[in-house]
Computed example of a mutant assay.
Amino acid sequence: MDSPHFQVANDSHVAALLPLVRAYHEFEQIGLSEQQRCDAVLPLLSPDSQVGRVWLIFISQQVVGYVALCFGYSIELSGRDAFIDELFLVESARGQDIGKQVLEFVIRQAASLDVAALHLEVSRANNRAKRLYSQAGFLARDRYHLMTFKVASN
């Protein structure tokens, strides 16, 4: 298997990216409409986006996935932080160390973007992903419980 290579996604990649996002959302049982998905992804695709980046993942000239990094800020962690908000590989690309290489790439990119800390969420039942993230150096913050409040928009 060839090593993955990465390309920052821009608005010309929407047609390639959105089916991957839909597949990830189906896998994770995330219920967004096609329009909601598109509206959520577009702000990440401008070259000077202040909210994050998306990279398409290629093996041998074929798109096999994507990874989205979304920026925030943490007083506790003394600077810009970011969530690996979504990381998806098509089934045929899984189990081949590509995920490990994607994480190594994202960590390097985060450092170049002055990110002090990376976070991610993983399903409690997804042992394969938890093992991958642990091996890459991500630690569970058992002292904390991620909680979310969805603010209604007008």
Rank of each mutant, 00 (worst) to 15 (best):
D2A: 07
H5Y: 11
H5N: 05
F6P: 00
F6N: 00
F6M: 01
F6V: 03
Q7Y: 05
N10I: 01
N10A: 01
D11W: 04
D11I: 04
D11Q: 14
D11R: 14
S12E: 11
H13G: 00
A15K: 14
A15S: 14
A15Y: 08
A16Q: 15
L17H: 05
L20I: 06
L20D: 00
L20W: 11
V21I: 13
A23C: 03
Y24E: 08
Y24H: 12
Y24Q: 07
H25N: 14
H25V: 00
H25A: 02
E26R: 04
E26P: 00
E26K: 09
F27W: 06
F27R: 04
E28R: 03
Q29C: 03
Q29A: 10
Q29H: 09
I30Y: 11
G31F: 10
L32N: 10
Q35G: 04
Q36A: 09
R37A: 02
V41P: 00
L42A: 06
P43N: 06
P43W: 08
L44Q: 00
S46K: 09
S46M: 09
S49G: 02
S49R: 14
Q50Y: 08
Q50W: 05
Q50V: 07
V54Y: 13
V54G: 05
W55Q: 02
I57M: 00
I57V: 13
F58E: 00
I59P: 00
V63I: 15
V63C: 04
V64E: 02
Y66V: 06
A68I: 04
A68R: 15
C70W: 00
G72W: 05
S74F: 11
I75C: 05
E76G: 11
E76F: 09
S78L: 13
S78H: 14
G79L: 05
G79C: 03
R80W: 11
D81F: 09
F83Y: 15
L89T: 07
V90H: 03
S92L: 07
A93F: 14
R94E: 10
G95Q: 13
G95D: 10
D97Y: 13
D97N: 15
D97Q: 15
D97E: 13
I98F: 13
G99F: 09
G99L: 05
Q101M: 09
Q101W: 07
V102A: 01
L103D: 05
E104N: 13
F105H: 10
V106N: 07
V106R: 08
I107Y: 00
R108M: 08
Q109G: 02
A110S: 12
L113G: 01
L113R: 08
L113C: 04
D114L: 06
A116E: 04
A117N: 10
L118F: 01
L118C: 06
H119K: 13
L120E: 03
V122N: 06
V122Q: 05
S123W: 01
S123R: 12
S123A: 14
S123Y: 03
R124T: 11
N127H: 15
A129M: 09
K130E: 15
L132W: 11
G137S: 05
G137H: 08
L139G: 09
A140M: 12
D142Y: 02
D142W: 03
T148S: 14
T148N: 14
T148W: 02
F149E: 05
K150I: 12
V151P: 03
V151F: 07
V151C: 10
A152R: 13
A152G: 10
S153K: 14
N154K: 10
